[in-house]
Simulated assay, not measured.
Amino acid sequence: MSQLRQLRAEEAEGLGEAAKCLTKLGLTVNQARVYIALLRLGSAKASEVAKESGVERAETYRALNRLGELGLVRASVLKPTCFIPSPPEEGISRLLETYSDRLRKMREMALEAVSLLKAEQRQPPRHAALLELVVGRRRAFRKALDMINKAKVEVDCVTSGYGLKRAAKGGILDAFEEATGRKVNVKLISEVIEANLHEAKLFIEVAEFKHADQLNAFLLLVDDAEALVGVTIKEDTALDTEDHIELWTNSGFFVKAMKQFFEKAWSEAVDVHTRLDKLRKNKSEAKQ
Rank of each mutant, 00 (worst) to 15 (best):
M1P: 03
C21A: 14
A144Y: 08
R33M: 06
A217E: 13
G42K: 07
L96I: 15
L279D: 02
I172Q: 01
L202I: 08
Y162T: 14
K281A: 13
L70C: 08
L7Y: 12
R66T: 14
E199M: 05
T81D: 00
E97M: 12
A37N: 09
L276K: 10
W248A: 09
L131P: 00
T81G: 00
N149Y: 07
W248G: 12
A113R: 10
L96A: 15
A128D: 09
A217C: 07
A128P: 00
V192P: 00
T81I: 15
E268G: 01
H244G: 06
E69I: 14
L103S: 09
L279V: 04
W266L: 06
E56N: 08
L27P: 02
V255M: 03
Q6Y: 02
L25R: 13
R139F: 05
S76A: 14
D146N: 13
S100Q: 15
A168T: 11
I245N: 00
L131C: 05
L228S: 04
F254I: 15
V231D: 04
L95F: 10
E48C: 01
L27M: 08
E199F: 03
E52I: 07
G171S: 07
V206C: 03
Y61V: 03
E90G: 00
Q214E: 12
E69G: 12
A167M: 13
N282R: 08
N30D: 13
S53I: 07
G91D: 07
L239A: 07
E177K: 14
A286L: 09
D243N: 13
S86D: 05
K287D: 08
S284Y: 09
L130D: 12
T98V: 15
A63K: 01
K201S: 09
R33G: 03
S47K: 12
A257P: 00
I189L: 04
I204S: 07
S86I: 02
R5N: 06
P88D: 03
S53D: 10
L131Y: 13
N185C: 03
I204F: 05
L219I: 09
Q31G: 02
D223S: 07
P85S: 07
A257M: 10
E120H: 09
V55T: 08
R40H: 14
N196A: 02
G16H: 04
R126T: 13
E226S: 15
K24Y: 05
A195F: 01
G54M: 09
K150M: 10
R166G: 04
R102A: 15
K187C: 08
F254T: 14
F218T: 10
K287A: 13
L67T: 09
E90L: 10
V270L: 12
L188C: 05
E246D: 05
T23F: 01
R40L: 02
R122W: 00
N185Y: 02
F176R: 11
K201Y: 05
T159D: 07
D213M: 04
G230F: 04
L215I: 15
G42Y: 08
C82H: 12
D174Y: 09
L279G: 03
A168P: 02
T81W: 00
T60Q: 02
N282P: 00
L202C: 03
R102W: 06
V231E: 11
K143H: 04
L145W: 01
G252A: 07
V272I: 13
